[in-house]
Amino acid sequence: MEETKQNVPVAVRNLTMAYGGTLIQQELDFDVPKGEIMVVMGESGCGKSTLLRHIIGLNAPASGQVLRNGVDLWNCTEEEHDKILRSSGILYQSGALWSSMTLAENVALPLQQFTDYSDAAIKEICEYKLSLVGLAGCGGLYPSEISGGMRKRAGLARAMALDPSVLFFDEPSAGLDPLSARRLDELILELRESLGATVVIITHELASIFTIATDSIYLDAESKRMIARGDPRKLREECPVEKVRKFLNRET
């Protein structure tokens, strides 16, 4: 039992989330096994981003647990906590690049802080990671000099800097052109395949959901609960909840 627990990068146990007195979601319970690409769906305002903030350790649960590799994120030693945080790469909605640093410096910062690689090696890694997201040769630019889509991709390069075992994406393809969005999907699949990364994605892009998701959950804004779970391709056809079918089929 203990052994299998260790292999679950993200597990949410009976989680209730609230801002002050406002309930966001309650009794969430799901696992994201290693190598899965889990998509979190739901209408706007249902608490998807809040769920992400709980899983990556920015918000504390009102009740329940967030387990990362079997360790309770909010009930562990500081060392364990830091280790968990370092093994996660996060892509924020608008990139969240540090604006006083160039793209290369943005990618280099986690490497400089948490590894003992030589400067030359770090420079090469930055160049490689930026190429991976299609930003080859842009390392010297500042975030204010590039477009929103480029910022998002640079944010992804930064999220991948430390080769995280779990990647979190907050609406990765929003604001990207279809070609870039498609490339991003491919990249996500490739990262999972080659590095065995586990991925948790918040997204509304149906095309992207059906291309990459291996599992999904649907958070309902009204009942404030998870109302569907499973492969979105199957949910689209046979989910008992009408709302979820409509969402996935883009009906009204």
Binding site: S131, L135, A136, G137, R183
Partner: peptide
């Protein structure tokens, strides 16, 4: 994949 997009000059 990393070479799919040509470097911007």
């Amino acid at each position: 994949l990393s070479k799919a997009a040509p470097p911007k000059d």
